[in-house]
Design a protein around this nucleic acid. Structure first.
Lengths: 216, 216
DNA sequence: GTCTATACTTGGATAGAC
DNA sequence: GTCTATCCAAGTATAGAC
């Protein structure tokens, strides 16, 4: 997996709706923007830096996207959509708390290596300095909290925890935790702590589960 | 010893070692840097922006700190030290889990309003783009994980959780959660979710506590 | 659609007067 | 220690040739 993404494309503009990965320039620019965000962070992601990364002319960014902010938002949208599809497909099988934790653990690993979450946190951190980004970044985060809420609801249904843990609040905390862990994880490259965190969570959920009866 | 100066003032240069807060220029610069980081984010915190915030000349930054990175690190050190003192004084009374959660809740509120955590997350996010910051930011984070670990250890001592929850791992998660919650909280300014999260945590800890006997 | 060239702005950093 | 002036690199964005 890892670099398996770079895109699903398919539904392009042109009439050539073949399955071949026709990489348009616009897509190449988005991909380069994502790579740059991951590697250099928001502050290092200038139009010129993106063009260097992708090996194309800097002016193309403005031709295709108008402003740098618009490109950045398109890139954010892209990862967000791609990852959401992946998350949904992975989580389809999950019915219990420990299922969910296990999947979260594997998917975090995937995200970490590919830098998907880093793009989010860099965009969030960056939107302080460019207020036009703020509202759009907020919108990009919402589906994630919704998604987490949905999963938590599903898994807490009928357990004694349902009355104790407001799904929306837990969802918020889980998303925040994801972001924070990724932030720290990337800072020093010591991934063992996150691993141990997920292992601990799995252990706990496995102990908890029998106390609840089958969650579903 | 990373810029051990930055200082507590008091022991100033001049013979006037009074208790009055003699604000040296160096301090004013650090304060302005913190304000700018909070308000404009890492990407918006240029030497010129800091000088505008503080109402002093831009060249002073380079006279007093050499480079912008060094100023930023001094500022990070400053908040980190200040907040650590505050945390330690607040937490001195805490003996139980629910004590700790309650204090964490109040202190988060304080941090949020003053933007203390934002400085951390902006510096972490920013260190991607300026690799010279990375190692120093890592060092600035360590005391926080240590501190959290210490607290968690203290409060878990002798409870059944002690065998289940590795203090270091939980500490890492708690710090990550703090960062992530602040990140999201500042993004859209909706502080109710964090509040509810802390309230939920308090409720849970209050329910859990009697099951453990006095934790201490 | 893509490239070159360029206008204009901001930023880090230094020199030198005061 | 502080200010003015300035150098130069880098950034966003646009115009116009191809």
């Amino acid at each position: 997996m890892l670099k398996a993404d770079a895109q699903d494309v398919s539904g392009g503009e042109g009439p050539t709706a073949t399955t071949t990965t026709t990489t348009t320039t616009k897509e190449r620019i988005v991909v380069a923007a994502l790579q740059t965000l991951r590697a250099e962070g928001f502050a290092g992601t200038s139009a010129r830096a993106i063009a260097r990364t992708g090996g194309f002319n800097q002016a193309l960014i403005f031709y295709h996207f108008g402003t740098l902010s618009d490109l950045l938002l398109a890139a954010l949208d892209r990862t967000s959509t791609d990852r959401m599809a992946r998350y949904r497909s992975m989580v389809a099988e999950a019915n219990s708390i420990s299922d969910l934790v296990g999947i979260a653990s594997r998917i975090y690993q995937e995200d970490l290596e590919a830098g998907h979450i880093t793009v989010l946190s860099e965009m969030i951190a960056g939107s302080l300095s460019r207020p036009d980004l703020g509202p759009e970044v907020v919108r990009a985060m919402e589906p994630w909290i919704d998604f987490a809420e949905e999963m938590i609801r599903k898994v807490l249904q009928g357990t004694p925890f349902a009355s104790l843990l407001p799904p929306r609040t837990v969802a918020f905390a889980v998303v925040a935790l994801y972001l924070g862990v990724d932030l720290l994880d990337h800072l020093d490259g010591d991934h063992s702590r996150a691993e141990e965190m997920f292992q601990t969570a799995e252990k706990i959920s496995e102990i908890l589960e029998p106390m609840l009866g089958a969650a579903r």
